[in-house]
Design a protein around this nucleic acid. Structure first.
Lengths: 384, 384
DNA sequence: CTGAAAGCGCTTACAG
DNA sequence: CTGAAAGCGCTTACAG
């Protein structure tokens, strides 16, 4: 045994001939000074092979309990950490998920949309619970986005997040899929989605919000939000809205739909556009809370009272919604659950387990912005 | 040249003897089918050595323009992406920063503190601008946190974020530093900080808020927030608060300070504690907006009007602050700037450039929650 | 300006 | 249960 050790360390032979103080001075041999501590160092200290160190540290069941303990002790002593790059290179796994975040940096708020911030938080936490790291990357929507994480082996899979214009993405998503990239996205759950998608039940949410406004006695409900194919989630909400109207025998009026993207400034602008049309309206269903909050601001500038003159409902239930004045009625999306589902689905994809797109239930949260009952309404506009 | 090629690919020799169809059928040689495309494939296609491919793709100036173009074309053709694990393993750089996020998961809000969410957003964006990826990791404050990113070579440096009890961290930070880990933290900028720290000018912020409240005529200003060494940022704000009082000749009253951590529920609780003490107070300076918002909620439950009976100021200027009722006077921290500074400082550290801790200027944002002037106050409590 | 060769620090068949 | 050996896909001196 000692012979083996001697063979391994040529310096050992010279110790006998060394001055005692020199030999005693640390660093005479084993001069790891600036060198990284590797599994070989642990192996030497624990008296096992490097391969065994690797197995022990990864919890391979074939390693004996006794050996594992010795290896772990040695690793602790030397303050050793496995080099992830080497480990990933060999195993072809990264232990990391990537979040591609698409944000249209609207000029007014350099702040990120609070809804997505909340999603981001829940995704991060879900990853942590699963023992994965999360790599975050912002992608400006306009630019050519690169999702090299998977190909470059930095991440095992990708989560796409953002109000996306999926039409412009479709070809890229297809390309990624062709390469075998594991991919899940947050968005509108539809049969034609190019990848596994987790999303809120936008249709039911839109219907519930509009039904609620109808229940309040509103008859001319404006929809603020881009209802085109470019914003499938908004479009679903709009479809739900239309369905609620039709079920009650109300003919939708195109003049009451104004495009808007999810920001306060856009909501404010949409309200002004709506006012300029001089169409009477008694309620607003905004495709997102930010739009709703912007619209409420514009309404109050026009001296229009919410909810007594115009009832307002939003979508998302961002934290701010319960603090605006009046508190905002909205459709809540369970971001915590959403984050969990996204991470869970992606991991299933990575492990080649069956996965399907899924729709998460929404919940209508009624707050003061939509409540007319308190004061009976004098002159509510009739249907044209 | 063709001889070299022949040596490289033993299959080449047999082509002549093969049935034409077999030789023609793709996959007879070069069976990359499931194999990853590597720099060797690019080298072959571009007619250069693998080393040259590596140089060309990294933009090494020694590569000729012509060669670079050929290599890039080949890479595009084969849809090649550099394997980051291999590249990092060799170069010992990750192109990634890690964000260790310390959050005390308070029972009431599973949501992340909005202030940090905003910091997270700005840090992510700053990283993107610098061409770095960001690895995010949640650390529960109570637990033994592991910052293995640097050692495991997944990240080139670490940003620490969170209202930290730095005393409990100090030893760990020291250990990391000893290992040579690049580290910057967000927090209280003090001479005794164990690492480079970027932070708001909490002292001036606290002073400004209290001076403002004094200017409004308030005389008994309660401070809601943990003012112990365990929350250095809150402590600085408290110190600023005390200084403002003393400058005006007001003797601080310990009975007006109530511990609270940054959450609404904690703010609510602190307000109740304060009320239970039966000490008169005419204003509240909360160490954070969340505390302030919680306190306002509790005040309104007690039928106490804000701002006419009690003026309130917070700290942070989270997005919600301008939407609560009444809108909250607060001390704004420039999160965008903060994120930039953190990333910038960390990169300087990584590049061995000189860096120093820095304090960012704050800005008092006066909103309605602190404004008494509108209605002259009847019975303001006198100093004891 | 380019190539041949070594090696980063692991994991994983293959043996025993 | 453990070891010897190969090799993951790059980067980087070292030559020329």
């Amino acid at each position: 045994m000692s012979i083996v050790a001697r063979q391994r360390d040529p310096n050992l032979a010279s110790i006998g001939t060394c001055d005692r103080r020199v030999a005693g001075s640390r660093g005479r041999f084993r001069v790891h000074s600036k060198k990284r501590i590797t599994s070989f160092d642990i192996a030497e200290l624990a008296g096992v092979s490097q391969a065994t160190v690797s197995r022990a540290l990864r919890g391979d069941p074939s390693v004996s309990e006794d050996t594992r303990r010795r290896v772990e002790a040695a690793a602790t002593t030397l303050n050793y950490t496995v080099d992830k790059n080497a480990s990933n290179l060999r195993s072809k796994l990264a232990g990391t998920l990537a979040l591609l975040f698409f944000d249209d940096p609207t000029p007014d708020d350099s702040h990120i949309n609070p809804f997505f911030l909340s999603m981001l938080g829940s995704i991060t936490q879900a990853c942590a619970r699963q023992g994965y790291d999360l790599l975050i990357s912002f992608q400006e929507l306009g630019r050519d986005w690169h999702a090299d994480f998977a190909e470059s082996k930095k991440a095992d899979g990708i989560i796409l997040l953002g109000y996306g214009d999926y039409l412009t993405h479709a070809s890229r998503l297809e390309k990624l899929r062709a390469k075998g990239t594991r991919l899940v996205s947050w968005g509108a759950v539809r049969p034609d989605q190019p990848c596994i998608t987790i999303g809120c039940d936008n249709f039911s949410g839109g219907r519930a919000a509009t039904e609620h406004l109808l229940d309040q006695g509103c008859r001319r409900i404006a929809f603020l939000g881009d209802a085109s194919r470019h914003f499938p989630e908004f479009q679903e909400r709009y479809r739900g809205h239309l369905q609620a109207l039709r079920t009650r025998g109300i003919v939708p009026d195109d003049a009451l739909q104004v495009d808007a993207e999810s920001s306060q400034s856009s909501g404010r602008l949409a309200l002004k556009t709506l006012m300029a049309r001089a169409e009477p309206f008694d309620a607003i269903f905004a495709a997102s809370d930010l739009i709703a909050i912007g619209a409420i601001g514009a309404l109050s500038e026009h001296g229009i009272d919410v909810p007594f003159e115009v009832a307002v409902a939003g979508f998302d239930d961002i934290p701010m919604a319960s603090y605006v004045n009046p508190p905002l009625t909205t459709v809540q999306q369970d971001t915590r659950r959403a984050g969990e589902m996204l991470v869970d689905s992606l991991l299933r994809l990575i492990h080649n387990e069956p996965v399907a797109s899924r729709m998460l239930p929404m919940k209508l949260i009624v707050r003061r912005s939509s409540l007319w009952q308190e004061v009976p309404r004098a002159e509510s506009p009739r249907e044209a």
